[in-house]
């Protein structure tokens, strides 16, 4: 199943075909097909255990997940052959559902190291501490943070909401081509959700694409997806537009499971 009506290959950023993946010998993804073009926002929805996060982790390259069949092309290149850091440097960004803490390393240092790794790969000059702080000023404003967050250790002692917002700061700084947001909305209160969603919306660029992995409809009221896909049992069982998300909100996921079983 293709997620896009635009077939022209030039604009394809991510092309997933028949992707199977397992963790600890258990098959989680059972034949995913998905195409994401530049400029698009896709929402991947589905009940718990449907494989949403696995899909995000596999695209990111987490070593715990084994791809057993299928292919993933990113900008026409074999994504699965690339190391996680190479994917990141090429512009694939994964906002983590559970961002990890790194003690003793300041947020500023971590951000600058990441940015410089990406810049180096792009053939751009690395930024020194002062230049970096200048470049960071606008990004901080976008997410509504002051620079006190920069001197705190990465995610150490951050609240759930702060961690999610920190992921979005990284997104803003690294300016990826493909942003995959893995349940960035979960654990946020209404105000925080609004800020985060608006930030993600503001950060959209014509040459980039966003994949929102989410359990809930509410984030989609702030960022309008071009396409909505429903994942169940490791497959995309239905694709549609924003209306599909609304339908899910009303009816839940069960009717899709039944439909899939019948079909």
């Amino acid at each position: 199943m293709r997620g896009s009506g635009k077939p022209e290959r030039e604009s394809a950023l991510l092309e997933i075909e028949n992707l199977h993946a397992s963790v600890e010998g258990r098959e989680i993804l059972r034949g995913i097909d998905l195409r994401v073009n530049v400029g698009e926002v896709h929402a991947v929805m589905g009940p718990n255990g449907s494989g949403k996060s696995t899909l995000a982790q596999v695209i990111g390259g987490h070593p715990a997940y084994a791809v057993t069949a299928g292919s993933v092309l990113y900008q026409g290149k074999d994504l699965l052959a690339m190391k996680p850091e190479e994917r990141a440097r090429e512009g694939v960004f994964l906002a983590f559902q559970y961002p990890v803490a790194i003690r003793g390393i300041t947020n500023a240092y971590f951000l600058r190291s990441a940015l410089n790794a990406v810049r180096k790969a792009r053939g751009q000059e690395e930024l020194g501490p002062v230049e970096f702080m200048d470049a960071l000023e606008d990004k901080l404003k976008v997410i509504g943070w002051d620079d006190s967050y920069l001197n705190r250790p990465v995610n150490d002692g951050f609240s759930g909401g702060e961690k999610k917002r920190n992921e979005i700061l990284q997104l803003a700084v690294l300016e990826p081509k493909l942003a995959i947001l893995d349940e960035t909305d979960s654990g946020l209160d209404i105000d925080a959700l609004k800020t985060v969603a608006h930030t993600v919306d503001k950060l959209r660029r014509p040459e980039s694409a966003t994949v929102l992995v989410t359990h809930y409809y509410r984030i989609l009221t702030h960022i309008t997806p071009d396409f909505v896909h429903v994942l169940s049992g490791g497959r995309i069982v239905k694709s549609g537009t924003k209306e599909l998300a609304l339908e899910l909100e009303e009816k839940g996921y069960d009717w899709l499971r039944e439909e899939a079983a019948v079909g």
Binding site: E85, A88, R89, F96, A117, Q170
Partner: peptide, 15 residues
């Protein structure tokens, strides 16, 4: 752990 290393790598840092 793998998760900590993966997190850094996913931001472009080498192992």
């Amino acid at each position: 752990g793998e998760d900590q290393i993966f997190y850094c790598k996913q931001r472009g840092l080498s192992n």
